[in-house]
Design a protein around this nucleic acid. Structure first.
Length: 178
DNA sequence: CAGGATCTACTTG
DNA sequence: CAAGTAGATCCTG
């Protein structure tokens, strides 16, 4: 994935660790989990836009709210221009998933008008640059339970639990999978 | 062209 | 039933 030149990165300290948020001119374009934040940001920290600090305030608030188990009131503008058309469709559809609800990969595929692209949808989820805010964790496998997660399955589990989407069925699925 | 964060149908104990 | 296997299907690099 290639990031546009003039990007900047800011930190989001939370109780669950420090996330890293990367902004372009158009909005939030990437969010990294704490574990992966040690690697140097691909961003050019020199370019700081005025509006970015406002965006970041919103991002931080939204993220912390989610991690506290509440539905965020507002989201920052997101720049998804780095993705392909297909990915943008998928991500857009993901944002439509209400807080506390889950969908299957296939359901998501159906929503973007391509019921048979479930597998490809999985790929797009993995390519999601803004996890949590774009709720890739609300996407589960149809029968088998969870599916995967780029940030680590424990994160997916934790996020689902926060939103109250944790079912005994999933619990069982995990123990079986492991 | 190979591979993936899938799904379904089918085949065995 | 449960568990395992094979094919189908679609986007990416």
């Amino acid at each position: 994935m290639k990031l546009p030149q003039n990007n900047s990165a800011l930190e989001v300290p939370t109780e669950a660790g420090t996330f890293l948020a990367v902004y372009s001119r158009a909005g939030l374009c990437e969010l990294r989990f704490p574990e992966k934040a040690d690697s140097p940001p691909l961003a050019d920290a020199a370019t700081l836009l005025v509006s970015m600090e406002d965006w970041h305030a919103v991002t931080s608030k939204a993220l912390r709210r989610l991690l506290a188990g509440c539905r965020p009131e507002i989201f920052p503008p997101m720049d998804l221009s780095a993705g392909s058309d297909f990915q943008k469709k998928v991500w857009a559809a993901m944002r439509e998933i209400p807080f506390g609800e889950t969908v299957s990969y296939q359901e998501l595929a159906t929503r973007i008008g391509n019921p048979q692209a479930c597998r490809a949808v999985g790929g797009a989820c993995g390519a999601n640059p803004i996890p949590v805010l774009i709720p890739c964790h609300r996407v589960l496998a149809a029968n088998r339970g969870l599916g995967g997660f780029s940030g680590g399955l424990d994160w997916k589990k934790r996020l689902l639990a926060l939103e109250g989407s944790w079912t005994p069925k999933l619990q069982a699925a995990i123990e079986t999978t492991v």
